[in-house]
C-alpha cells in the first residue's frame, strides 16, 4: 500500500521510484559489481584458509597418538615430544628477549624520540632490517653467536638469532599500537602532574596492551614457523641426554625444523616418516591456532573491561576466521 505524501498528492514512494537517469543506472551497476568483487575476494580468502586448515588436519591427525605426541622418536616410533618441548622453549626464550627490547624501543620511538634526523635513521634501519631474508640472519647468527661468542649450535644461539630477526617487526607493530593511544590520555595524565614515565607506564602502555599482544602473537607465529636460521644456528637434532632439557647450550630442533628434516632427510629406520611430518605440521598449526584464539579471547575481555562495553564490530561485519 502506497503511503501518501504530506501534501496528500502523489504517493510518497513514487518520489523514489521515478525513472532513473542513465548515469544513475550505470552507477548502480558498477556499485553492485564492485561489491560482488570484494565479496568474492573475501570469500576466496576464507575458502583458502579453511582448505589449508582442513587438509593439514585431515592428513595429520591420524598420526596423533600418545606415543607420537609425548615421547621421543625411536626407530619404531616417530615421536615428537622433545620437539614440541623445544619449540615452546625457543618460543619462550626468544620472546623473553624480543618483548622487552622491542617494547622499549617502540616506547622510545613513539613517546620520547623527537622527530628529526636520528629518529628517521632509526626508523629507516628498522624497516630495512625487517626486509632482510631470514637466512641472512642465520648466517649472521652463525658467525657471531656460534663462532665469535663460542655458543656453538645451541638453543641459545638459535633464540638470539630469532630475536634479532623478529625485533624489527615487533618494534614496528608495537610502535603502531602505542601511537594509536589517543593523545588526550597523555595530556590528561601530564596535566595531573604525572611524569612522562608515569604517563607511559600507567596510561599509555595499558591502553596499548591489546595492540602489543597482537605484536607478540605475530612474532610468536614467526618464531614457531622459522626454519632456515635455526638450521644454521641451533642444529637439526636433539641429543637423547638433552630431551626435555632446560639447558640453553644444548642443540635443539623445533617442530618446523623437524618437518624440514623429515622431508629432506627422512627419519632413519622409520617406515612411515611422511605421516610423522604431516602429524608435526598439524601440531604446529594447532599451536598457532590456540595461541591466536587465546589472545583474541583475552583481548576481547580486556577491551570490555577497559571500555565498559563490547568492542566495536569489525569493519565489514564478517566474522574473523582462524588467524
Amino acid at each position: 500500500m502506497a503511503s501518501q505524501g504530506l501534501d496528500g498528492g502523489r504517493p510518497l514512494n513514487e518520489v523514489f521510484t521515478g525513472r532513473a537517469t542513465r548515469s544513475l543506472r550505470r552507477a548502480r551497476i558498477v556499485d553492485r559489481f564492485a561489491t560482488g568483487l570484494m565479496w568474492a575476494a573475501a570469500l576466496m580468502l576464507v575458502a583458502v584458509l579453511f582448505a589449508v586448515i582442513a587438509s593439514l588436519l585431515i592428513a595429520g591427525i591420524p598420526a596423533f597418538s600418545p606415543e607420537f605426541l609425548f615421547t621421543p622418536g625411536t626407530f619404531t616410533n616417530p615421536g615428537i615430544g622433545p620437539q614440541i618441548w623445544c619449540t615452546f622453549y625457543v618460543l619462550f626464550l626468544t620472546l623473553l628477549i624480543v618483548v622487552p627490547i622491542g617494547t622499549g624501543a617502540a616506547v622510545y620511538m613513539s613517546e620520547y624520540a623527537r622527530p628529526g634526523k636520528l629518529t628517521n635513521i632509526i626508523r629507516f634501519s628498522t624497516e630495512s632490517l625487517a626486509s632482510v631474508p631470514s637466512i641472512v640472519y642465520g648466517v649472521f647468527g652463525s658467525i657471531v653467536f656460534l663462532v665469535m661468542m663460542g655458543l656453538g649450535y645451541s638453543i641459545l644461539s638459535g633464540s638470539l638469532t630469532l630475536a634479532l630477526l623478529n625485533l624489527p617487526l615487533m618494534v614496528r607493530v608495537a610502535e603502531d599500537a602505542i601511537r594509536s593511544v589517543p593523545g588526550s590520555y597523555r595530556e590528561a595524565s601530564l596535566a595531573l602532574a604525572g611524569s612522562k614515565w608515569e604517563t607511559t607506564r600507567k596510561v599509555v602502555l595499558p591502553a596499548a596492551l591489546p595492540g602489543l599482544l597482537t605484536a607478540i602473537v605475530l612474532t610468536a607465529g614467526r618464531i614457531i614457523g622459522e626454519t632456515a636460521p635455526l638450521i644454521l644456528t641451533m642444529g637439526t637434532t636433539i641429543s637423547p641426554n638433552a630431551y626435555y632439557s632446560l639447558n640453553p647450550l644444548s642443540t635443539g630442533e623445533t617442530l618446523a625444523v623437524h618437518i624440514w628434516v623429515i622431508k629432506i632427510i627422512g627419519l632413519p629406520g622409520v617406515p612411515n616418516s611422511q605421516a610423522a611430518a604431516d602429524g608435526s605440521a598439524a601440531v604446529l598449526l594447532l599451536m598457532v591456532l590456540v595461541i591466536n584464539i587465546f589472545v583474541a579471547y583475552f583481548n576481547t575481555r580486556l577491551e570490555r573491561r577497559l571500555r565498559g562495553a563490547a568492542p566495536p564490530p569489525r569493519a565489514g561485519g564478517s566474522k574473523k576466521v582462524g588467524t
Binding site: 588526550s184 590528561a188 595524565s189 595531573l192 602532574a193 604525572g194 596510561v203 591502553a207 577497559l306
Partner: peptide, 20 residues
C-alpha cells in the same frame, strides 16, 4: 577524556602519582 579505567581508578589516578 577519562582514562580507559574504572571510575574509581580515574579519580584515584592523580592521587596515586608520585608527585602528589
Amino acid at each position: 577524556n577519562p582514562f580507559p579505567m574504572s571510575i574509581f581508578d580515574n579519580v584515584a589516578y592523580g592521587l596515586r602519582l608520585e608527585a602528589q
